[in-house]
C-alpha cells in the first residue's frame, strides 16, 4: 500500500465525515421540502412533473460519473496510483446507482405522460446502453479479483467507455430521429417558469451533487481500509 494513498485517505477523513454528510443532509432535506410542499404543480403535466427535479440531475450526473471514471482511469494509467484506481471504482459504482435511479424515475414519469413505461427514444436507448457499460465495467473488476492487471484493464475500459459516448449519442439520434413532441415535453425548462420551481431545481441539483461526492468519498475510504486490512492480515500471516 502506498503511503501516498494512506495520507490522502487520512486527509479526507474530517471533510468527508462531517462536511459532506451535513451538506448532503441539509440540501437534500431542503430539496424534498421544496419539491413536495413549496413548488406548484406544473400546468400541463401535473404532479408527476415533480420527479424531474431529481431525474434531470441524475441524468447529467451519470454522464459526469463516466467522465470522472475516465479521468481517474487516465490518471491511474499515468501514475499507477492506487488512489486513482479507487476513485475510478467509486465513481463507477455511484454512477451505476445514479443511472439506475434515472432509469427508475424515468418510467414513473413516462407511464402517466407518454402512456408507456418505456419507448426507444434516443435518450432512453442511450441511457440503457450506458447502464450496461457501467455494469460491465464493475463486472470486469469483480471477475479480476483486484490484482493490478485488472486495475489496468478496468482503466482501459473506463477510457474506451467514455470514447463510446459521443458515437452512441450520434447513433441513437440518427437511428430514432428526433421526436419533437417527445423532446419538448421532455425539456424541463419548458415547465419551470415559476421562481420556486427554479429554486427547487437548483437545490435538488446541489443536493444530489453532494450526495454523489459523499458516496464516492465513503466508497474510496472503504476500499482504502479494506486494502490496508488485507496488507495487515498478510503481515500477520508472516510473523
Amino acid at each position: 500500500m502506498s503511503t501516498d494513498g494512506d495520507s490522502r485517505a487520512a486527509r479526507l477523513k474530517p471533510w468527508s465525515d462531517v462536511a459532506l454528510p451535513a451538506l448532503t443532509g441539509v440540501t437534500m432535506l431542503a430539496a424534498v421540502i421544496m419539491v413536495f410542499w413549496v413548488v406548484p404543480n406544473e400546468k400541463i403535466q401535473g404532479v408527476v412533473q415533480r420527479i424531474f427535479y431529481f431525474h434531470v440531475h441524475l441524468a447529467w450526473m451519470c454522464f459526469g460519473g463516466f467522465v470522472f471514471v475516465a479521468g481517474a482511469s487516465a490518471w491511474y494509467l499515468k501514475t499507477g496510483s492506487p488512489v486513482a484506481d479507487r476513485y475510478a471504482e467509486a465513481n463507477a459504482e455511484v454512477g451505476l446507482l445514479y443511472t439506475t435511479l434515472m432509469l427508475w424515475t424515468g418510467p414513473l414519469w413516462a407511464r402517466p405522460i407518454w402512456g408507456v413505461w418505456w419507448t426507444w427514444d434516443p435518450r432512453l436507448t442511450m441511457t440503457i446502453v450506458l447502464w450496461v457499460i457501467y455494469a460491465a465495467y464493475l463486472m470486469l473488476r469483480r471477475l479480476g479479483e483486484g490484482d493490478e492487471t485488472i486495475m489496468r484493464y478496468a482503466a482501459v475500459l473506463g477510457i474506451v467507455g467514455v470514447l463510446d459516448i459521443p458515437l452512441l449519442v450520434l447513433a441513437v439520434r440518427l437511428w430514432r430521429g428526433i421526436h419533437p413532441a417527445v423532446m419538448i415535453s421532455d425539456d424541463p425548462e419548458a415547465g419551470l417558469r415559476n421562481a420556486a420551481m427554479k429554486w427547487a431545481f437548483a437545490i435538488s441539483g446541489v443536493g444530489l451533487g453532494f450526495l454523489f461526492a459523499w458516496l464516492v468519498s465513503l466508497r474510496v475510504r472503504f476500499t482504502t481500509v479494506d486494502q490496508e486490512l488485507a496488507v495487515l492480515a498478510a503481515e500477520k500471516e508472516h510473523t
Partner: peptide, 24 residues
C-alpha cells in the same frame, strides 16, 4: 483472456461498446 469466466466477459464488455456500431 486474463480473467476467470472469460467466455462471459468478452460479450459483456464488447456488446455495449459495440452498440453504436451495430445500429449503424
Amino acid at each position: 483472456s486474463r480473467t476467470r469466466a472469460r467466455e462471459v466477459l468478452l460479450p459483456l464488455l464488447s456488446f455495449p461498446v459495440l452498440a453504436p456500431l451495430l445500429i449503424g
